[in-house]
Design a protein around this nucleic acid. Sequence first.
DNA 1: TGAAATGTTGGGGCG
DNA 2: ACGCCCCAACATTTC
Length: 471
Amino acid sequence: MSLAIFWFRRDLRLSDNPALAAALANHDQILPLYVHAPQEETPWQPGAASRWWLHHALSDLFAQLHGGLLIRHGDSLATLLELVRDTAAEAVYWNRLYEPAAVRRDTEIKKVLRAAGVKVVSDNAALLFEPWELCNRQGNAYRVFTPFWKRLLEFGLPQPSAGSQASRGKLMQAAEQGTLGAGSVDELGLRPGLPWEGGLAKAWRPTRAGVEARLDEFLAADLRDYAHGRDLPGRDQVSRLSPYLHFGQLGPREIVLACRKVPHAAADFLRQLGWREFAHHLLFHFPHTCEEPMDDRFREFPWRQDGPAQCAWQKGETGIPLVDAGMRQLWASGWMHNRVRMIVASFLTKNLLLSWQGGARWFWDTLVDADLASNSLGWQWTAGCGADAAPFFRVFNPVLQGERFDPRGDYVRQWVPVLSNVPAKWIQRPWAAPEDVLREAGVVLGENYPHPIVDLKETRLRALDAWGRVR
DNA sequence: TGAAATGTTGGGGCG
DNA sequence: ACGCCCCAACATTTC
């Protein structure tokens, strides 16, 4: 009778799970384990929105396993050693993580377990390719997206391997785990316990059934005209799969497989999956880039300190409608449309001249899809200090972006309801509207909607000057 | 996965 | 009919 522990981390699914499939193939009985150890991810412990999602993802996995998921809270290595001792497990299986803290921890755990005579098997459930499997002709990591993606496509987009649907009859049932001291998901205390979670619950279905339904719906309807429609936040023609991917309730290879089955071209959408892949590639090879700019010239960049401005940005009270709409969508639903993420990030770093790290930290705490790799890439891209970064002179004008991508103001109306009666012509810049137009719409600037906290033209020039000095 | 300034062109109003 | 000016509309350059 051979027993192995399967350690769930951010691969909270039973399908397309290579390490789980390998464990099932090689052992008679598998103990499914989850260890809650946020302190091991310091300084990037999951934020409130992320914990809310994790709570539901774990509850759902617990249900899929009919309660046969051992839940522990504490030190990962100590927990594994204790369970190996108590169950006489021969092996521990897991799927890899790529954040610097997780890599350090897992390397140490692997070393200690092997020294103790325990077999350790790790595999890749989170990415299309391991970060070290793709390199340029000089054998170096990629720093530019396009050649990276081109190379990946040359290798071919991988699909779930056949063995991943192995028998689940060997998974140890709850009754058999009786003496091992299982905790419950509720005991982990992951839910915010704020009225806030009502907004998250309304916006999301954080379960495997939820993601399967979402994927089908997206591929059937929203993939047509995706290249254009994904830029319109009012239309919301985007996949919304990112939180499921982060927690591994859906694997990227499952997405590739699903795309093969639809009649429309999926290349533009898969390219977005490529950006997620690229972000992991970069964070693995340049692990300091979640804290520090990749471009050393930005180490001494003169970011301002401005608490009130930072706060206005966070609360969506900048007086710039599209920025405020995005920040309010984030707070209310734990998510923001990608086009708007770029706009609010440009506004924070360029118009307010506040550090990208501060923005990244706020996103980290409020996004249900907060992912260290994607978040770091996105913010460094906007700030112009990262790999394949936006050119220094690229400053988004949130008014023009609004007129181009939210021309009727649908998105602004939804998230900044006080502006809902402002005509489309003025909704992206109410401060410029004639008095009678505002009066008729019920808007009183400085009363029920703020005056803009900065002048867009002036702050653009200030940003150009600051970025110009870096060159 | 920009925006603004500057340059060019061509149609129409008008003397 | 002609030249002149104005100014969209579009293209190019610059940040």
